[in-house]
């Protein structure tokens, strides 16, 4: 380790960590309209006091509305006089629509006997500062059951399809703790549900390893995402590959590894490169702790990431029938191919 370089790097690391914590602590709440003060805490109704407000005093929603129908300045001015700049500035902060625009008929819902024109049962967040002013999807499904639509992956009657790709499920279909490990199975069993939000191209964004710029380089700003190959991947990849043999092979073919290793001169397929193997790796000393056969049995995929030259692989030179490397097939090995067909023929032919 180069001690001279370590100190400034450590200082830089501490500075980034400190900035992270300061940034977290320094955050202030975005301005939000004081609904509670207007709806629940206003000294009103008595003689000489202003009249009491309800939702309809300021908002006039109907099925033709796509937004939350903010009041005009004149509405505020009725009580606040002409100084409405501060109030109106709050309206610049729109509530976050996690599911995009929804097709919702306010008139019809407000007329229902169970709702009785009340807004707060659905929009309880307007008077509770820590909750969103918009109801979660579970609020909708407390009355509406959509089991069949869920099965069929039909979201369009309520959601706008074009918004679905940007929607992160919060209550239903939530991608929870086991999701990343489980998503392959879900893609098999819930194909239509997945397809209601995700295009196939989104799968390719991670799984298509032939694209030049991987998803991690294209999305370095997504610190929330659990990308496999984050920007620190290079410095840990050899240990990760050793810890979980075959994990790389679930997505990558072996030439994916070697095309990079060759380009960087760390592959046996590049003339002049250094051998990564320790002394005693090959030869007649099969009892050596570093003998290659033992490692090859444990993690043959790592071997293949450099030594996969088809019939020209150097394994064949020693392990073909009659070769001094002996029979390489371990106990339990089996293949339905004939000895003269395909790759088998290069050893057995």
């Amino acid at each position: 380790m180069r001690g001279g370089a370590a100190l400034p790097h450590a200082v830089l690391g501490v500075a980034v960590l400190a900035a992270t914590l300061v940034g977290a602590c320094a955050d202030r709440a975005e301005p939000r309209f004081p609904h509670r003060a207007h709806l629940a805490e206003l000294d009103c109704g008595a003689p000489g006091k202003p009249y009491c407000l309800d939702c309809n005093s300021c908002h006039a929603v109907s099925k033709s509305d796509r937004a939350h129908k903010l009041p005009a300045a004149a509405t505020c001015a009725r009580c606040h006089g002409g100084d409405t700049r501060k109030v109106l500035a709050v309206f610049e902060t729109k509530p976050e629509r996690a599911s995009g625009a929804l097709r919702f008929d306010h008139d019809r819902h407000l007329a229902m006997p169970t709702v009785q024109g009340q807004c707060v049962p659905c929009h309880a967040g307007v008077v509770e500062p820590r909750r969103s002013t918009l109801p979660p999807m579970s609020q909708c499904l407390s009355c509406h059951e959509h089991e069949e639509q869920f099965r069929a992956g039909v979201c369009v009657p309520c959601h706008v399809q074009a918004d679905m790709e940007r929607t992160v499920p919060q209550t239903f279909l939530r991608h929870d703790q086991g999701f990343v490990r489980r998503h392959g199975q879900l893609a098999l069993q819930e194909k239509r549900v997945c397809g209601s939000c995700h295009a196939e191209a989104q799968c390719d964004g991670c799984h298509d390893v032939s694209q030049d710029v991987g998803i991690e380089r294209r999305r370095p700003d997504r610190i929330e995402e659990e990308f496999v190959h984050r920007r620190d991947f290079m410095v840990r990849h050899s240990i990760e590959a050793e810890a979980q043999p075959a994990r790389c092979a679930r997505c990558h073919t072996v030439d994916t590894c070697d095309s990079c290793h060759v380009a960087r001169g760390v592959s046996g397929n590049r003339a002049g490169s250094r051998s990564p193997h320790p002394p005693g790796w090959v030869g007649t000393n099969a009892g050596s702790k570093s003998f290659h056969g033992r490692e090859a049995r444990r993690d043959i995929v790592s071997c293949a990431s450099c030594h996969e030259q088809g019939p020209a692989t150097n394994c064949i030179r020693c392990h073909k029938v009659g070769g001094f490397g002996g029979n390489p097939h371990p106990r339990g090995w089996k293949s339905g191919g004939s000895e003269s067909s395909g790759m088998c023929g290069y050893c057995h032919g």
């Binding site: 072996v254 090859a296 049995r297 444990r298 043959i300 071997c303 293949a304 030594h307 996969e308 088809g310 019939p311 692989t313 394994c315 064949i316 392990h319 390489p328 097939h329 371990p330 106990r331 339990g332 090995w333 293949s335 790759m343 290069y346 050893c347």
Partner: peptide, 8 residues
């Protein structure tokens, strides 16, 4: 893959 025959 020739290497697929080397391990179980």
């Amino acid at each position: 893959s020739v290497l697929s025959v080397f391990s179980t």
